[in-house]
Amino acid sequence: MLTDPTFYLLAIPAVILLGLAKGGFAGVGAIALPLLALRISPVQAAAILLPVLVVQDAVGVWAFRKNWDREVLALMIPSAMVGIVAAYFLAAKVSATVVLAVLGAISVVFACYRLWISRGGRVPVSSNAPRALGAALGFASGFTSQVAHAGQPPFQMWVLPKGLSPQVLVGTTAIFFAVINLFKIPAYLALGQFTHENLMAAAVLAPLAIASTLLGVWLVRRVNAERFITIIYVLMIVVGVQLLYKALS
């Protein structure tokens, strides 16, 4: 079992932010894996976080089970599964250093994209874009989710222009990632990533994962957290740059 205090100093806020994201603060959980990757390998960090994500998904889906968009899920889930399979076959050939660099780059790009959107920037996909693009973005979401639990950017590029209500957007996101996170489990098992050490660390973090998700569900209906979310994205850029530096050096 992991006993490094520094790991838990990073893991506790990471899991809390994941819970807030699952509860409705979309996007802030994307910093969780980059935070852990500052201390342990991104591959091990992803393996520890997957069981945590599955637990949080169950809470999020239950909370928003009545609010979701059938058309988005029907289009994006099958293509995301194809992306997960593709990433699985690639994973055995890619070093942890490459994963670290990819994770850093995704962190910086996603945070900049979200900050740009929050300042009134236009989403680069129109609401009447062809369904083939939606399927391609679903594939990209599954692929990046399998590699680094970073499937939010392509998913949001397709969904945000749809103009869904906040509740439907959160519910659709919760169900989409709940399904693909479950689909990722066999791949992680096949790659031998669910070691005893990783599963024990996930078990220690599980109660916090449930509590933080319930907190997110409660808060999202009561507070305007724009300033908090902006700070998280700025921090994500800093962490992403640090990961890139770590990989390149």
Rank of each mutant, 00 (worst) to 15 (best):
A63G: 04
I210N: 02
R65T: 11
L115N: 05
L160Y: 11
M1Y: 09
S141N: 14
V170K: 00
G24E: 00
A47P: 05
P42V: 03
V43M: 11
N181G: 07
N198F: 09
Q167T: 07
P186G: 10
L205I: 03
V15H: 00
V168I: 12
I232C: 04
F143P: 12
A135Y: 14
Y8A: 00
G27N: 00
A96M: 15
G216R: 00
A178R: 01
P124G: 11
L199S: 14
A47E: 03
L10G: 00
R65A: 13
R119D: 12
A37I: 07
A203Y: 01
F139S: 13
L9N: 03
L133G: 12
Q146L: 15
I84G: 04
V72K: 11
P13F: 02
M76E: 11
A190G: 13
L182C: 13
L10Y: 02
G240W: 03
N128I: 14
A21P: 04
L199D: 10
F176L: 09
K246Y: 05
P207K: 01
A111N: 06
N224W: 13
N198P: 10
V147I: 15
S165Y: 08
I231N: 05
S79K: 08
L160D: 08
P207D: 07
P13Y: 00
I237K: 08
A92H: 15
V241L: 13
V43G: 07
E71T: 14
I210F: 08
A174G: 06
V28Y: 02
A11W: 02
T3Q: 15
V15R: 00
L50H: 03
C112K: 08
Q146D: 14
A101G: 11
L219V: 02
S145V: 09
I106W: 05
T230W: 06
I31F: 08
A187C: 13
T195V: 06
A74Y: 11
A92G: 12
K184A: 10
L191W: 03
T172V: 09
R39Q: 14
A150G: 10
S212R: 00
V43E: 11
L199C: 11
P51R: 01
G23Y: 00
L235Y: 06
A187R: 07
L103N: 08
A206V: 02
Q242M: 13
V204M: 14
P207E: 05
A96H: 14
V168P: 00
G216Y: 02
R119S: 15
N128Q: 15
A92V: 13
T213D: 01
A247F: 06
A201I: 04
K66F: 15
M157E: 07
L205N: 02
I77L: 12
V147F: 15
M236K: 09
K22I: 04
F7P: 01
K246L: 14
M81G: 13
L100W: 05
N128E: 15
P42W: 03
A63Q: 03
V123H: 06
L243D: 05
A14P: 02
G83H: 10
I231A: 14
R39F: 06
H149S: 08
M81W: 07
A136M: 15
A132D: 13
G104L: 05
V15S: 04
G23W: 00
S165W: 04
A190Y: 06
G29C: 11
I77E: 07
I77W: 05
V15K: 00
